[in-house]
């Protein structure tokens, strides 16, 4: 049962991610990406990481994608106004990126040793366990520094958004 649910969610996430890339209309792209996020949130629930799942939905689907949609709607981008590239550009792009892929695979093929999968701990994703891990152990300093980083980014965004800065 678990495996089939995983498979369904995985297929949904891959298909919607591909549709997101191939959709001609940017608004459709954003909506497909939201479906991808839901499928991934479903995977988190399957791992009993409900906190992660719901934060994933709140942050990505509920906030970031809304802003994307907002900008797209305000700019009124659609397939008519989007510049279409000629076939020559598309073919040359495909060839160059394919060659890059071949080089990367050749260079890294023997270099990467994947670590063994960590043991599955069912209560890892519960909010109490997660909170203790972030605030009680060695992660507290990086966590707080990340918070300061976010604050700095927010202040920076507000400053950039202001038209005139009086120093």
């Amino acid at each position: 049962m678990d495996f089939y649910i995983f498979l369904t969610l995985a297929v949904i996430s891959v298909i919607t991610a591909l549709l997101m890339v191939f959709a001609r209309n940017p608004v459709h792209s954003v909506l497909y990406l939201i479906l991808t996020f839901f499928a991934i949130a479903g995977q988190y629930v399957m791992l009993n990481a409900q906190f992660l799942a719901v934060v994933h939905i709140i942050v990505y689907a509920g906030a970031i994608m809304v802003l994307f949609l907002f900008v797209l709607m305000l700019l009124n981008l659609n397939k008519d106004s989007e510049p279409q590239k000629s076939n020559l550009w598309k073919i040359s792009g495909a060839i160059t990126s394919g060659m890059l892929l071949v080089v990367m695979v050749g260079a890294l093929r023997n270099q990467i040793q994947l670590p063994a999968a960590a043991e599955y701990q069912p209560d890892r994703g519960l909010p109490a366990v997660l909170g203790r891990m972030l605030f009680d152990s060695e992660f507290v300093v990086p966590f707080e520094i990340t918070g300061i980083l976010f604050l700095a980014a927010m202040v920076g965004a507000v400053l950039v958004g202001k038209r005139e800065i009086k120093v």
């Binding site: 719901v54 939905i57 709140i58 509920g62 809304v66 709607m73």
Partner: peptide
């Protein structure tokens, strides 16, 4: 009885925007 009940509600509240945005657009 989710152990994240109130966050679940906040999550679905934040998704309410999509119906309105899709309809309006």
């Amino acid at each position: 009885d989710l152990n994240i009940g109130i966050l679940y509600i906040m999550g679905f509240v934040s998704l309410g925007v999509y119906g309105i945005m899709m309809g309006g657009w």
